[in-house]
């Protein structure tokens, strides 16, 4: 059985709990192990690097140092975590002076990092390592009737990922098709939802997320699939505010791509955290 070092990140213990549950369930069903990195800390997200440069790298690097003895590739489902860990890795390998300071910092705490981390997003692992054939072979309830807008957001495809096109990604499209879903043409698939602006400048965040949902509905989607806990929350929890701000109903279920995988595999909705989603997912091929 192949295994990965698992970095859930803070969001997956809170808002993104259904993402955590569905990632774990889907990996287990495919025979892939996920071993949580012991005592992982927050990646720092966009906030930490707004305040401090080198320390933000060191904060993220503690996780890479803790994971290294496991000898496994790291899987990080949260888009921000995936980006920040990748950014730390790029900085350490590209800027020797910063790397030297980070190594010194880690040493002061009895840690060491040889720079060998490979950081991957579950979408990349599932499609490019497990493969679409192996996934399709596990589908027992094809997602007939699902017309999905595949929403990648920003940080899993830009700027470090390299597993897909940074502006017109295709990986999730192909995955959803393998599950039997119809994937709608969705030009805004890698356009920003507003990220943490929803928490700080709500009017701006609501506008950015509204445009994404308006477009998804115009493209006849009956659900949006996401790969990031913040995208999922912004698009799902603010649909009422969007309606009030723009006088237009954009109600649409926002699900994690791993929840759709689990449903297609015939896993119990509860094991995928479906009951935690705020917008009822009527078109899903199960009764929750």
């Amino acid at each position: 059985m192949s295994a990965y070092a698992y970095y859930p990140g803070c969001s997956l213990t809170g808002l993104g709990k259904p993402y955590d549950e569905s990632v774990r369930a889907v990996f287990a069903h495919l025979g892939l192990g996920l071993e949580e990195i012991p005592d992982w800390n927050c990646c720092g997200a966009t906030s930490y690097m707004s305040i401090s440069g080198d320390k933000a790298v060191a904060l993220a690097a503690r996780n890479l140092a803790l994971a290294e003895p496991m000898g496994l590739e790291i899987v990080a489902p949260c888009a921000a975590c995936y980006l920040v860990l990748s950014k730390a890795q790029h900085t350490i390998s590209g800027y020797p002076e910063i790397a030297a300071r980070v190594h010194k910092g880690l040493q002061a705490a009895g840690l060491a990092y040889a720079g060998r981390a490979v950081i991957r997003h579950p979408l990349d692992v599932l499609v490019n390592t497990v493969g679409l054939d192996a996934i399709a072979a596990k589908v027992i309830r094809p997602l007939t009737g699902c017309r999905v807008a595949p929403y990648y957001g920003c940080q899993i495809v830009r700027p470090y990922s390299g597993f897909d096109d940074p502006l017109r990604p295709q990986t999730m499209d192909r995955l959803l098709e393998a599950l039997g879903a119809r994937v709608v043409e969705y030009p805004l698939k890698a356009h920003c939802c507003g990220g943490s602006l929803m928490g700080t400048m709500e009017d701006i965040g609501v506008r950015m997320s509204f445009l994404l949902l308006k477009e998804a509905r115009a493209r006849t989607a009956n659900m949006v699939a996401t790969a990031c806990p913040l995208c999922q929350y912004n698009l799902e929890a603010y649909q009422g505010q969007m309606r009030r701000a723009y006088g237009e109903d954009v109600t649409i279920p926002i699900v994690y791509f791993t929840q759709l995988m689990g449903l297609a595999f015939g896993l119990a909705p509860k094991a995928l955290g479906i009951q935690r989603n705020l917008v009822t997912a009527d078109p899903l091929p199960v009764t929750v």
Partner: peptide, 29 residues
């Protein structure tokens, strides 16, 4: 709604070894 669906806790999440992290960050300073 988030509390009801088990997606929000009011407690403080923390790592087991904050001293180790502190040592890393202090050394960076």
């Amino acid at each position: 709604k988030l509390i009801k669906t088990g997606r929000m806790a009011l407690g403080q999440e923390r790592i087991k070894d904050p001293k180790q992290l502190r040592a890393v960050l202090d050394a960076m300073e």
